[in-house]
């Protein structure tokens, strides 16, 4: 737990430090999600250990980690399904309560619905639990959003896994929540469904919603996330903007020049391993980029851009192994 002492003594430097930390604390308090030293133990097993981070409004956060890293536990703690052993969770600056929960929509692990009810009826239950009196057109519009309107009157027992997942997404979006938490949302979806989820998340982001997405499909996370939080053995090992984190692991870079690539290759090949990839672009190892660019400028080559090559997969393996 963070200290709640009042700053009424100490040296001016200490006081300044305390005020600075208070400002940080205040900012975290105002975040959509703020975790302070959260841990979770299941008997002897530590599922989460001292996890602290904050998520601001409008962010799309990719939560990554291998199986058993603590992702689902973390999402369950944020949504109140699991109680933390220690630490504090604040959502929209407040502890979790029904009022706060009404601002959250979540699909945790897998979409489960009452198999003996129709898709529309399942969604109606969720909407009613959220204090609404939904009309059929309201339900249909929500299901239309996830591409399930045609099957709304089918009993869920007859749904495929992908259709259930779509229903779970509709349930997560019911009540127009400000924070949407999606744990493995593309599990079981076909390529069309995966693309739909991607568009859905983009639409949520455009609407100013905050999204937390956990997925093993790194390419999908890379396409939608603006920020990453990476867990290993219950601890955060990376937390930052996607671009910033990925740039750390770029193995190669592309140098685009005004002059033809053949000229550039001719100039650089004597000292570094370079390959032409386009008429005006070459590929070079990341650690050689700086010296190569200096060399090219000295040789009078005009450089249009230097683009580091990186992928979330590279970053993920570098971070988690």
């Amino acid at each position: 737990m963070l200290s709640r002492r009042r700053c009424n003594s100490g040296t001016p430097a200490l006081r300044k430090l305390f005020i600075a930390s208070s400002v940080v604390r205040k900012q975290e308090m105002d975040s959509v999600v703020a975790l302070f030293g959260v841990c979770k133990r299941y008997r002897q097993r530590i599922a989460l250990d001292d996890v602290s981070f904050a998520i601001g409004r409008g962010e799309v956060v990719g939560l990554l980690g291998s199986n058993g890293a603590g992702k689902s536990t973390l999402l369950r703690i944020i949504t109140g399904l699991v109680r933390p052993t220690c630490g504090e969770v604040r959502l929209f600056g407040k502890p979790l309560s029904p009022t706060v929960r009404s601002r959250i929509g979540a699909l945790i692990e897998r979409a489960d619905a009452y198999p003996y009810l129709m898709g529309a009826e399942n969604l109606e239950i969720v909407l009613r639990l959220r204090g609404q009196s939904p009309t059929r057109s309201h339900i249909e519009a929500l299901l239309e959003r996830v591409g399930l309107a045609d099957a709304m009157d089918q009993v869920v027992r007859t749904y495929s896994y992908g259709m259930r997942q779509r229903l779970g997404l509709a349930m997560a979006l019911a009540g127009d929540p400000e924070l949407v938490i999606l744990d493995e949302p593309v599990n079981g979806l076909d390529p069309r469904g995966i693309a739909d989820v991607r568009q859905l998340i983009a639409a949520l982001q455009r609407a100013g919603k905050t999204v937390i997405i956990s997925s093993h499909l790194l390419s999908e996370v890379e396409l939608v996330a603006t920020r990453l939080v990476v867990l290993r053995d219950g601890r955060i090992i990376a937390n930052g903007a996607l671009e910033q984190l990925l740039s750390r692991v770029a193995s190669h870079a592309t140098i685009e020049t005004v002059q033809p690539a053949d000229v550039v290759v001719e100039l650089l090949n004597r000292r570094w391993n370079v390959e032409k990839i386009r008429p005006h672009a070459v590929r070079i190892a990341a650690e050689d980029v700086h010296n190569a660019v200096v060399h090219l400028i000295a040789a009078g080559i005009s450089i249009r851009a230097v683009i580091p090559e990186r992928s979330l997969e590279q970053f993920y393996f570098a971070a988690t192994t």
């Binding site: 109140g80 399904l81 706060v100 945790i108 489960d112 969720v126 639990l129």
Partner: peptide, 8 residues
């Protein structure tokens, strides 16, 4: 889980 995710 779905029930307890709702604001009740």
């Amino acid at each position: 889980r779905m029930l307890f995710l709702q604001p009740v």
